[in-house]
Design a protein around this nucleic acid. Structure first.
Lengths: 127, 127
DNA sequence: CTCCATACGGAATAATTTTTCGGTATACGA
DNA sequence: TCGTATACCGAAAAATTATTCCGTATGGAG
């Protein structure tokens, strides 16, 4: 586990919020779970733009923060299900609002970085 | 200027939103400007937890994205004023909402990282 | 001319996050 | 026992972001 050298101000709401969904794939994971994709292997299949390892790591942080809860079923095959906690649910509308804002204003950023096509995709919107 | 090796999906609203205020000091800068702190030197005095250079860099990105507009007065002493564009203004309520969410839920994160006191502060709330 | 306040920027380094690669473990069925 | 599907994790490498250090330029004051 990586140990920070520069301390964070965990009394700042923004800092806290960013720890919870500021990472690259966390919004994507939260969104997927909110859409009913519960099992790790399903999430791995759903989010193909990054590796399973990355999903697992960010997911375990979300569990640690109490955003996602994890339920282990000891049947066969080995089965784990993730779901959003109440707190986790409360992020979803904010995430949607962020997404809306970004979609509305993406022209601002796009004018600047309009060189090459995109390889990875972590879009929340799944048509 | 740093050139990315991994492309971003600039059609994803979240990605766009994060480019605009996902960086470490951007929320702080936007907040300060929205509170009427306009000049670079004022911002440097206001935000002491990072160096002027960092503020300048993140500020210039905000200008580039059209979130902040820059006005140069050629009097003496040399004077520059930043202000939020209309788009920039439209972020402020979202930022406040993020901050509120974080404040409400900071206990989740704090239980985990409660080792040492904080050195830096980038809190949006200035009592 | 020198000094000061303002504003900005290059470039190296440090810190952090993301990615890759490979491994462990469990329980079942053939 | 061996193979398979599930789920997870350590550690190094790569990529990205933040920080530090130091330099430039302008225009007025002394």
């Amino acid at each position: 586990m990586y140990e920070r050298k520069i301390k964070e101000d965990l009394d700042c709401g923004i800092v806290v919020a960013m720890k919870v969904f500021g990472a690259k794939w966390k919004p994507c994971i939260i969104d997927a779970i909110s859409r009913g994709i519960k099992r790790p292997s399903e999430l791995h299949r759903e989010i193909t733009s990054t590796s399973p390892r990355v999903i697992d790591m960010q997911l375990s942080e979300l569990v640690e923060y109490g955003i996602v809860s994890k339920k282990v079923y000891s049947g066969f095959p080995l089965c784990v299900e993730y779901s959003l906690t109440e707190t986790g649910e409360s992020i979803v509308p904010i995430l949607m609002q962020l997404n809306q804002w970004g979609l509305k204003n993406k022209g601002l950023v796009k004018k600047i970085n309009d060189d090459e096509p995109v390889e990875t995709s972590r879009c929340l919107i799944h048509a």
